[in-house]
Amino acid sequence: MMSEADIVQTVARVRGGEADAWGVLYQELAPSVFRLCRRALPTRQDAEDATAEIFMKARLRLTQYDSERPFRPWLYRLAANHCWDELRRRRRQRETGDLDALIAESPEPGPLTQLLAEQDRRDVRSALARLSDRDRLAVVMRYYAELSYEEIAEVLGVTSSLVGVLLLRARRRLRGMLDKEGRA
């Protein structure tokens, strides 16, 4: 696995016109971008297609990348943007629910911890797939791509304070689904 410095150096080689450098970068980063897409999009095929499209976009927008900053988060943000655009385009799910009500709820330790320990992680990913598009993408961006609230907000077109609400709602829904499955 390449270090972030190696990646940035490889990006510089791409910009310098080295023919093979983009291939190296692709081999290194495509798996993680694919996983991000796989978590965010409904099907494996969608994720494969999205990964290919994201790399095409990345290649075209490489001039916009600030080489003083790490490349991976830049790519992840691009990927998340792409996934969000794709999800919105499909309009598979519409956001519903009263977000404000969540904040007022009393704090209780959820069962997710225990459930996660007990259940197969595949169930978690399966539950994740049943979240609304926006909730799911928020979780993926935060806990897979490690993007900041500001970056997530920028992708989703919301305020950064709402990102926390989205994450909390998503986690509670995950708990609910896993709890229900655990009891079933």
Binding site: L116, R125, L128, Y143, Y144, R171
Partner: peptide, 9 residues
């Protein structure tokens, strides 16, 4: 929960 979510993802 956060750690496990990261692990699962």
């Amino acid at each position: 929960e956060t750690a496990l979510l990261r692990e699962a993802l």
